[in-house]
C-alpha cells in the first residue's frame, strides 16, 4: 500500500515537471473529428480541445468535497438529486465504510452529485463524445478500436467482478496520459441520455422507428464494438438520480483561448 502511494507520488511529481500550463492532475486533449459508435447528430463528431482528469474521482477526493458541501451528505441530499443507494457504502455522512480504499474510485454517486462536484472545481462532466474520444485510445494509439486486443481487454473487465475496489492509477495509462477509463468503474457523462437506447436492442437498429431514438442514433457504426455497445446500453439504462456500485466519474475542463 505504502509502495503504491509512493508510486503515485512519483507519478505526480513527474507530471508536475513535464506538463506545463495545465491544471493539476489534468491532461490536455487535442480535439479532432472521429466516428463514434452512435453519433448524436451525424456520423462524424467533432471534439474541441479540452483538459481531462488523469484519474477518476477517488473516495478520498469525494470525501473532502462532501466535507465542504454538507448538502451532498447522504442524510442531507435531496431525494430528487440522488436515490436511496447514494453513498450506500458509507456508514455515516462523513464516514466511508472502513473496508473502502480511499484511493479506489468513488461509486454510488448520482449524476447530479457528480455534476456538482465538477462545478465546484470549476470543471464539468465530459460529454459522451469527449469521453468516448479519449477512451478509444490504448497505450500507444489514439484510436485503438481496430485492434482486437483493445476490445478483448475491455470485455475482460466486464467479466471481472468487484473491479470497483481496485486502486486508481495502477494499470497503464493510455496514450493521452489518462488512467482507468476502462477497468474499474463506468463513468457518468454530461449528456449520458442523449443517445437513447430503448433497451430493446433490436429496435435500436430499425431505421423506421423514430419514436425512441433520434435518427442518428439508430445505426451503430461498428457492429463488432461490443464494449462500446455495453457502454451505450448502461448509459441508456440510467436516470440522473441513480447511483450504482459500478459507476463513478471524472471531470473535464474547457481550454481557454
Amino acid at each position: 500500500m505504502i509502495n503504491q502511494v509512493f508510486r503515485l507520488f512519483i507519478l505526480f511529481t513527474v507530471f508536475h515537471t513535464s506538463i506545463y500550463a495545465q491544471t493539476k492532475d489534468m491532461v490536455f486533449i487535442e480535439g479532432s473529428r472521429y466516428i463514434p459508435l452512435y453519433g448524436r447528430d451525424s456520423t462524424v463528431v467533432e471534439v474541441k480541445d479540452f483538459e481531462m482528469d488523469i484519474y477518476p474521482v477517488s473516495n478520498s477526493d469525494y470525501l473532502s468535497f462532501v466535507k465542504n458541501n454538507p448538502k451532498w451528505e447522504k442524510s442531507q441530499v435531496i431525494a430528487l438529486f440522488a436515490d436511496k443507494s447514494y453513498l450506500a457504502n458509507w456508514d455515516l455522512d462523513l464516514k466511508p465504510n472502513p473496508s473502502i480504499n480511499p484511493q479506489s474510485p468513488v461509486n454510488y454517486v448520482s449524476w447530479f452529485a457528480a455534476k456538482a462536484y465538477c462545478e465546484c472545481q470549476d470543471k464539468r462532466l465530459p460529454t459522451v463524445d469527449e469521453w468516448e474520444y479519449v477512451a478509444m485510445a490504448d497505450e500507444t494509439t489514439k484510436d485503438a478500436r481496430v485492434k482486437p486486443e483493445y476490445n478483448a481487454q475491455i470485455l475482460a473487465w466486464y467479466e471481472t467482478p468487484r473491479t470497483n475496489e481496485k486502486v486508481i492509477g495502477i494499470t497503464p495509462k493510455n496514450v493521452w496520459g489518462v488512467y482507468d477509463l476502462h477497468g474499474l468503474v463506468w463513468e457518468w457523462t454530461q449528456d449520458f441520455n442523449s443517445v437513447l437506447i430503448t433497451g430493446e436492442s433490436r429496435k435500436d437498429v430499425d431505421k423506421d422507428n423514430t419514436l425512441f431514438c433520434g435518427s442518428a442514433s439508430l445505426n451503430a457504426t461498428d457492429l463488432m464494438n461490443y464494449a462500446a455497445f455495453m457502454r451505450y446500453a448502461i448509459r441508456g439504462s440510467l436516470k440522473a438520480k441513480y447511483s450504482m456500485k459500478n459507476l463513478g466519474f471524472r471531470c473535464v475542463k474547457d481550454v481557454k483561448d
Partner: peptide
C-alpha cells in the same frame, strides 16, 4: 447491485412490443 450491466427480458409468451424488453430495461441495483 453487484452486476456490471443493464439487462431486460423478452418473453415470447408476451403479446406486446419487444415481449416486455422495453419496459423491463433495468440498470444494476434497480
Amino acid at each position: 447491485p453487484d452486476n456490471k450491466l443493464p439487462h431486460n427480458i423478452d418473453l415470447h409468451a408476451v403479446t406486446g412490443t419487444g415481449g416486455g424488453a422495453e419496459s423491463s430495461f433495468v440498470s444494476p441495483g434497480h
